[in-house]
Amino acid sequence: MQRRQKGLSDRDRERYLRQLPLVGEEGQKRLLDASVCIVGAGGLGCPVSLYLAAAGTGYIRIVDCDIVSRSNLNRQVLYGEGDIGKSKAGVAAEKVGTLNPDIVIEPMEVSLSGDNGSTVADGVDIIVDALDNYPARYLLNKIALEKDIPLVHAAVTGYFGQLLTVLPGRSACLRCAVPHPPEITTSPPVIGVTAGIMGCMQAGETLRILLGDEPIARDALMVWDGKAGCWEKICISRDPECPGCGSWRNNG
């Protein structure tokens, strides 16, 4: 499924020249050996896939069943007029693949469900929640907990965004943080840069976990306010009664 690295090639050393001082050869090999599943190829999924590919994440699975529509184009920066009507996962995989042809990008054109959830997340090191609704997000949270795979969640509305990283058994989960989803009657408005900022934060958090660093949004909702230009950190504890992770063993 994923590229197994024996070492860095000269081409790798050139491509990743400007980040090797930060991540080291071992870190870069770790990234090239890593596999990530991005569920949702919309406003969040586009920047997540671009930056994970640019950093040299060896295998990226992009999951989305939607097709590109014109109203996506203000924020879903992988797509253009010529892509309208095409599969988001397919176009995203193709475009991200041109950015970095040395990694493997797999499009998966499915809608996340209880039946396919295990397959969607099969064999990956990290799951990225780039979805647009809470029922699907809660399902992905459940899958991540069941399969013991870290989950990097973000959501956006308007000028505002939130980030949360779930380490199964070792942190609060999405349902501890947001036990009751906001009531949404229509598609919320989003300014493209909000999705860009939060998608980049998800990519950064994913790289942090892959490199063995402490995620910044563990047990905390990081809230971005693009109107005021500031971040707030809301500390979250595991809820022992949580329907998502309450029965999970405590690994400290």
Partner: peptide
């Protein structure tokens, strides 16, 4: 008191 309304979109 601090109050935050979670967001939903993606």
């Amino acid at each position: 008191i601090a109050l935050y309304p979670p967001v939903a979109g993606g």
